[in-house]
């Protein structure tokens, strides 16, 4: 019958259509993939290859295989160890503060009803401001004689004893950089926490109130324990941001005073592009990437859903 031939014809059409679609899919994806392959996937592999070689771009004619020599050298290098220590100190304080403050701001924003759009605009705005330019502004704000911070301490709050050359003291330079990084990124983390809060089920929150858990009780016994998934996302983001910090110390302190704010990323940069030790720099970058991976997995493990 005519009907059946139409059906098979249609089915046959779908099959060739399906095969055609496969090819189309490949061509739709290809241009983007070429970019990502050339500038990210291939470099990941190539820099691992490089990390196993001794190669000074200026002096050496070609890379010489060195096994894990670069990695061992880095772990014994006192400058690298200082940078590693500083990076971990930065990451630790940055992580704790950005998580706590962003969560507190998100919880407060979640509970207030008025001026929402003003608060949000003010708190989220630093997200889009180029970090290196914010760092320049803070360089001026933290300046000893003419900066805003010391002016506020000396002349407005009357706390002249607290005024200091913030970026020139080993004890406060790191804290200043952490502060600037927090300023630049708390808005981003707050958005992630707000997303988590808004995804909580209404029934659960209302049931809690019916059961007599409102206000702080509801926050501590109902809301916070139910944000596990959000902790994973914000946590990984904070860890990665902490370990790969570069712009703030590079613009504001150049790693100084001494080596007190030198971070691993800067070590990679100096070794690669000032000393042209491409192999050694690649090994240092890989150590950073391995740390990032390890801490991200740890965070996921701690916040895994318990059945």
């Amino acid at each position: 019958m005519a009907g059946s031939s139409v059906t098979t014809g249609k089915r046959h059409g779908f099959r060739t259509l399906h095969r055609k679609k496969q090819w189309y899919g490949f061509f739709f994806v290809l241009p983007a993939f070429l970019f990502i392959f050339a500038f990210m996937l291939y470099p990941v592999v190539y820099s691992f290859y490089m990390s196993l070689h001794k190669y000074n771009y200026v002096f050496d004619p070609s890379p010489v295989f060195a096994g894990f020599g670069n990695y061992l050298k880095a772990l014994e290098d006192s400058t690298f160890r200082t940078a590693l220590k500083n990076t971990i100190v930065f990451s630790f304080f940055y992580f704790v503060l950005v998580m706590a403050v962003s969560l507190a701001i998100a919880l407060t924003l979640y509970h207030v009803k008025r001026f929402q759009s003003f608060f949000r605009t003010a708190i989220f705005m630093p997200i889009v401001v180029p970090v290196s330019l914010s760092a320049l502004v803070f360089l001026w704000i933290l300046q000893e004689n003419y900066g805003l911070l010391n002016y506020l301490l000396r002349d407005v709050l009357g706390l002249a004893a607290l005024a200091k050359p913030w970026l020139n003291l080993g004890s406060t330079a790191m804290a200043s950089i952490i502060g600037v990084s927090l300023w630049a990124t708390i808005g981003f983390e707050t958005i992630l926490f707000l997303g988590g809060l808004q995804a909580l089920s209404r029934e659960m929150l209302e049931a809690a109130v019916v059961d007599g858990a409102d206000g702080f009780k509801r926050i501590f016994y109902v809301i916070l324990p139910n944000l596990k998934e959000t902790y994973v996302i914000t946590g990984i983001w904070a860890i990665l941001h902490g370990l790969k910090v570069f712009v703030e110390p590079n613009v504001m302190t150049n790693g100084g005073p001494g080596n007190s704010t030198l971070v691993v990323y800067q070590e990679v940069y100096y070794n690669a592009f000032n000393r042209f030790e491409m192999g050694y720099a690649s090994a240092e970058a890989y150590i950073l990437a391995i740390l990032a991976l390890a801490f991200s997995l740890l965070n996921m493990y701690i916040n895994r859903a318990k059945d």
Partner: peptide
């Protein structure tokens, strides 16, 4: 298409790698 899942996974994985790793290459 065949391999599109792996391709997507590879692309999304790059988000978590510090840029420092790519700079030298």
């Amino acid at each position: 298409f065949r391999g599109s899942g792996a391709m997507l996974a590879a692309i999304l994985m790059t988000i978590t790698i510090p840029l420092a790793v790519f700079l030298v290459p």
